[in-house]
Design a protein around this nucleic acid. Structure first.
Length: 140
DNA sequence: GCCAACGTTGGC
DNA sequence: GCCAACGTTGGC
């Protein structure tokens, strides 16, 4: 199973907003970047991702699950754009900051570190495990 | 608030 | 198809 990372500015859509949606989840709409869209197209329901707060917080704060495969983005009529739905799974006991990721040698190749502008990113299994450990989870 | 990095657009 | 101009993102 592939792992992912979703970035959001908390002022626009925060982890708390995501949690408030509960099991119904929320379309991850508004993405207007081909690489990010392609990543969402590759997602399969049940796969998990990290939820990252950009700008304010700059930390991975929770884990989400893809609950609907890619479908047309409801926020536009442009057929080029698609999105998946995600739902909150759990918060990380300890948020993992961008600073901490940069300081961890095992995460040197992580997209969040090397291309911070990509809003929907792939995460390797190894990176997933390291961040779970840093965040206070044994594995997930 | 600044600015560097990056992606997209559009003229040629 | 190239590339300059522009807009946006996001760390600092």
């Amino acid at each position: 199973m592939a792992c992912w990372l979703f970035k959001s500015e908390p002022a626009t859509w925060s982890w708390d907003d995501q949690v408030a949606r509960g099991a119904a989840g929320e379309p991850w709409d508004g993405v207007r970047n081909y690489q990010a869209r392609n990543n969402m197209r590759a997602m399969v329901p049940g796969e998990r991702g990290f939820f990252y707060h950009s700008n304010q917080g700059k930390a991975i704060v929770g884990i989400v699950e893809v609950c609907a495969p890619a479908h047309p983005d409801p926020s536009t009529d442009d057929p080029r754009w698609e999105c998946v739905d995600i739902r909150a799974v759990r918060a990380l006991p300890r948020p993992v900051t961008l600073e901490a990721c940069k300081a961890e040698p095992r995460l040197a190749g992580m997209v969040l570190v090397t291309n911070s502008r990509l809003s929907v990113q792939p995460v390797t299994e190894a990176e997933w495990a390291v961040i779970c450990e840093m965040g206070g989870l044994d594995g997930e």
